[in-house]
Amino acid sequence: MRLTHVPQCAARKSHPTLQRRGASGFPSPADDYLDTPLDLHRQLVPRPASTFFMRVDGDAQADAGFQHGDLLVVDRALAPQRGDWVVAVIDGELCLRRLDGRHQRRWLCPPTPHRARLPLDGESDCRLWGVVHYVIHGCRQAPPLNA
């Protein structure tokens, strides 16, 4: 049995045709330099199976750069590290928090200073859902990012 890695493509695939001829039939001098167009989706979503898009609800983390309506690119395959922004389940709700601490002693930073930090020790009612990989913020005074 031969083992073959099955490459996973997302829904999009772009592949340049090998040769483009001008109207005259001569090969274009650019043929040797043909590159695929830049694909932002591929860049931001290297692992489609584990990547989920979500929407920021509220302005409590606006100082950190997350504004209401911003698009979050959340990747569950990333190993959460100290300082990561994460989506966490707190009291049955998906929440945006910053992760701090190491190893067995990790906690979620509170969104406002007067609230307590939440330890992630397995006893508390909160757990990590995924790591925020990118946040996409529309700069114009326009309706939120829609397709």
Binding site: F52, F53, M54, R55, V56, D57, G58, D59, A60, Q61, F66, H68, L71, L72, V87, E93, L94, C95, L96, P111, L145, N146, A147
Partner: peptide, 14 residues
């Protein structure tokens, strides 16, 4: 949640 831009899950930041 995973196939419509206008139905994405909301992440609470309040």
């Amino acid at each position: 949640y995973t196939t419509r831009w206008d139905e994405l899950p909301a992440v609470r930041a309040r």
